[in-house]
Amino acid sequence: MNDAAYGAEYHLLGRFGLLVEDSCFPDSDFAAVARSLGARGATVARDADLDAVADWLAAPDRPLVVDCKIEPSAMAPWFRVVFALKEAQNRQ
């Protein structure tokens, strides 16, 4: 998952009211890096982009790197749990 940010830092900065932009960086094209090394590379930013993955699954001939673009604000469910536990500890 490629959020063009340091994900945990993004959420922690936001949690403390600091600038989340400080954890962001220009997007990287990991699919292009994979292709330059002889693997297949696919960039997925929308549902239609998954066709490249389906094509590879039909005839996998070498490794595939899927560069899944996501919003930096997307938070993993487990990270929400960590925040909730920390808040519960702080209330005790």
Results as ranks from 00 to 15, higher is better:
D61C: 11
R15Y: 14
G14M: 13
V66W: 00
P63Y: 03
G38A: 09
R35Y: 09
S28T: 13
G17Q: 14
A59F: 06
L37S: 08
V33P: 11
S36Y: 04
R40Q: 07
A58C: 08
E21M: 05
F16I: 03
A54G: 03
P63N: 07
A45R: 15
A42N: 02
A58N: 07
D51L: 15
D49A: 10
S23V: 05
V20E: 14
H11P: 07
S23G: 08
A52S: 03
F25L: 03
V20G: 01
V65L: 12
S36W: 02
S23H: 03
R46T: 09
K69H: 08
V66R: 03
F30V: 00
D47F: 13
D51G: 12
L19P: 00
V53D: 02
A32C: 05
P26L: 09
H11L: 10
S36I: 00
A34N: 04
G14A: 15
L37Q: 09
R15Q: 09
S36G: 15
A59V: 06
A45E: 13
A52V: 11
P26V: 07
D29R: 07
C24F: 08
A45G: 11
P63H: 08
D22N: 13
D51Y: 07
G41M: 01
V20S: 09
F25G: 01
V33I: 11
A54M: 06
L18M: 15
D55H: 14
D49K: 02
A42M: 01
S36M: 03
T43W: 05
V20L: 03
A42V: 15
P60M: 02
V44P: 00
A45D: 12
V44K: 01
D51P: 04
G17E: 15
R46H: 11
D49G: 04
P26H: 08
P26I: 07
F30E: 00
W56Q: 09
A54R: 13
V20M: 06
F30N: 00
S36L: 00
H11I: 06
L19M: 05
K69G: 05
D29A: 10
T43E: 03
R15H: 12
E21K: 15
A39Y: 04
V66T: 10
A52L: 03
L57C: 13
C24K: 14
D67T: 05
A39P: 04
S23W: 00
V66S: 04
V33A: 13
A31F: 07
V44A: 03
H11C: 06
E21D: 15
L64V: 05
A54P: 00
R46L: 02
L57Y: 02
A34D: 09
F25K: 01
F16S: 02
S28K: 13
D55Y: 14
L19N: 05
A52G: 02
F16P: 00
D27K: 10
R35S: 02
A45T: 09
S23I: 04
V33M: 12
A58S: 14
R62Y: 01
S23C: 08
A59N: 05
S23F: 04
L50V: 13
G41E: 01
F30I: 00
L19R: 10
A45K: 11
D27W: 07
L13P: 02
D29H: 14
F25D: 01
G17V: 08
D55Q: 14
E21R: 15
G41W: 00
L13N: 14
F30H: 02
L64T: 08
P26F: 09
R35M: 06
H11D: 06
D51E: 15
L18E: 15
D22W: 15
F16L: 09
V65G: 01
A32P: 02
C68M: 06
